[in-house]
């Protein structure tokens, strides 16, 4: 009995040691980023001794970055893109997914197959023809191009459909018998139930759009239209030696994603579990 208890304690200790090591591995780069953002170039690489917050911390790096490059403009563009894309994605994919999951109609399987078939298709395979087409539409160097690019993903429809299929059909049937229209059923029954799935999709879409690099690189050329990622990259190549500023910019670019993630994360595991993403 006693040895079993000792055994359990030993096991717990190992678990905690592993956890702490992993947490450190995950955190160290972020701590480094935060610390380097307020250091001078001389202090940045100093290891003996390593100081987390230097004596003369250069907090004004966080202010300077806004004037050295049009950082506010980049933030504005990225926030605009991310919000529009996320809203469109949530709305259109949950809309379409409801139809695929709960309605009977001709060519349902055929249409859904079109979505499935493209999930495995890397974007890079068709980015060139897509670019040529977009330019034909006059969307080159327009923020709208990124919206069109990101807002109608097959992934969103697939994910939401998996989730809706987990909701019992009887709910919808009962509502139909009561004479509710399909739109009403979607709006007042399904949508409120799909918080976990919507949160998960929000995190995925938000993170993807916020952090996208290749898409904006190809489509957005004028400086006033660039996103944070492009702006940061540009800044790094211009002020290569100014680690403090680069890190300050990096810290700032993380904040919005972290906020969104922290707000939505309690739904997250539940969302992934219920959307059948686990396969």
């Amino acid at each position: 009995m006693k040895s079993a208890k000792n055994h359990a304690i030993a096991q717990k200790t190992i678990v905690y040691i592993i956890l702490i090591i992993i947490a450190l591995l995950m955190l160290i780069p972020f701590l480094w980023m935060f610390s380097a953002a307020i250091k001078s170039d001389r202090e940045v690489f100093q290891m003996q001794p390593f100081v987390f917050i230097p004596e003369n911390a250069k907090w004004n790096n966080y202010l300077d970055i806004w004037t050295k490059i049009p950082f506010a403009k980049f933030v504005g563009n990225t926030v605009f893109l991310t919000i529009v894309v996320t809203c469109l994605q949530l709305l259109t994919s949950s809309f379409a997914a409801y139809s695929f999951a709960k309605l009977e109609f001709k060519h349902r399987n055929g249409l859904f197959f079109a979505y499935i078939a493209t999930i495995a298709m890397p974007w890079q395979v068709y980015m060139v023809p897509q670019f040529i087409m977009m330019r034909k539409f006059g969307l080159n160097d327009k923020l709208l191009a990124i919206i069109c690019l990101q807002a109608f993903s097959a992934f969103g429809v697939f994910m939401m459909k998996q989730f809706y299929e987990g909701i019992p059909n009887e709910l919808c049937e009962a509502a139909r018998v009561d004479g509710m229209s399909e739109y009403k059923i979607y709006g007042s029954i399904m949508l409120p139930l799909s918080k976990p799935a919507l949160s998960t999709l929000t995190i995925f879409t938000f993170v993807n759009t916020w952090n996208d690099y290749l898409g904006p690189l190809i489509y957005l050329k004028t400086e006033t239209k660039k996103t944070i990622q492009l702006g940061l990259k540009m800044f790094i190549s211009q002020y290569s030696s100014d680690y403090g500023l680069i890190m300050a910019g990096s810290v700032l670019s993380l904040i919005p994603v972290l906020i969104v993630f922290l707000i939505l994360q309690r739904y997250f595991v539940e969302g992934v579990a219920s959307t059948g993403l686990k396969g």
Binding site: F131, R135, G138, N140, D141, L217, I218, K221, T222, S237
Partner: peptide, 21 residues
């Protein structure tokens, strides 16, 4: 004047001038 940035200037310009439009 339209500023296309110096980093990938010629790539961006070639993209702009491809086809018509």
């Amino acid at each position: 004047m339209v500023d296309l940035g110096s980093t990938d200037y010629m790539t961006v310009l070639a993209t702009e001038l491809s086809g018509d439009g």
